Computed example of a mutant assay.
Amino acid sequence: MQEKRLVLASGSPRRKELLAGLGLSFEVITADVEETIAPGTTPVDAVQDLAYKKALAVANTLSGGLVLGSDTVVALEDRILGKPADAAEAKQMLAMLSGRAHTVYTGIALIEAETNRSVRDVKATQVVMRELSAAEIDAYVATGEPMDKAGSYAIQGLASTFVTDMHGDYFAVVGLPLQLTAHHLAAFGLDVLRQGRG
Rank of each mutant, 00 (worst) to 15 (best):
R194D: 10
V119F: 04
R5L: 09
L24T: 08
P39F: 10
L94R: 03
A124Q: 11
V163W: 03
R79M: 09
A51T: 06
V7P: 00
R130N: 09
A38F: 12
G21N: 04
N116E: 09
D138A: 11
V192D: 00
A182W: 00
H167N: 11
P39L: 11
D71P: 08
L8E: 02
V128A: 12
R14H: 06
Q92I: 12
A20Y: 07
V141Q: 03
F171G: 01
T181R: 00
E131S: 12
L110S: 03
F171A: 05
G64P: 12
E89C: 07
L56V: 14
L19C: 01
K54V: 13
G82W: 04
K123I: 15
A172H: 01
P39G: 09
G151P: 04
L50F: 11
F162C: 02
K149L: 08
I37H: 02
L110E: 01
E112S: 15
G23P: 01
A135C: 10
A38E: 14
S160T: 09
I80D: 05
G107I: 04
R197Y: 15
V58D: 00
L18E: 00
A9Q: 05
G11W: 06
A187P: 08
A142D: 15
A186D: 05
A139K: 14
N60L: 14
E136L: 05
Y52H: 13
S160G: 15
L22E: 01
A59V: 06
D32C: 12
T143N: 09
L68S: 06
L19F: 02
E112P: 14
V127T: 03
M166S: 00
T143M: 11
S118V: 11
L180S: 05
D71V: 14
K54H: 12
V174K: 00
A139M: 11
G196S: 10
S63D: 13
H184W: 15
G11M: 13
R194V: 12
A109G: 05
D78H: 13
L193G: 08
A135Q: 13
G189A: 11
H167G: 05
G196H: 03
L18P: 00
V127S: 00
T181Y: 02
E17A: 15
V163Q: 02
A20Q: 10
K4V: 14
P84E: 04
L76T: 05
L68T: 04
R14G: 01
I111N: 03
V128S: 12
G107Q: 02
T61M: 06
R100K: 09
Q2P: 03
A134Y: 10
L8H: 02
R117L: 11
Q2Y: 09
L8S: 01
H183T: 15
T181K: 02
R15G: 01
A182E: 01
G168I: 04
R79F: 07
A142K: 15
M96V: 07
A113R: 05
G21V: 08
Y105E: 07
A182P: 00
Q179S: 09
G196M: 08
D86K: 07
A113S: 14
Q2L: 13
P43F: 14
P146E: 06
M166F: 02
G198V: 12
A38Y: 09
A31H: 09
Y52W: 15
L6K: 03
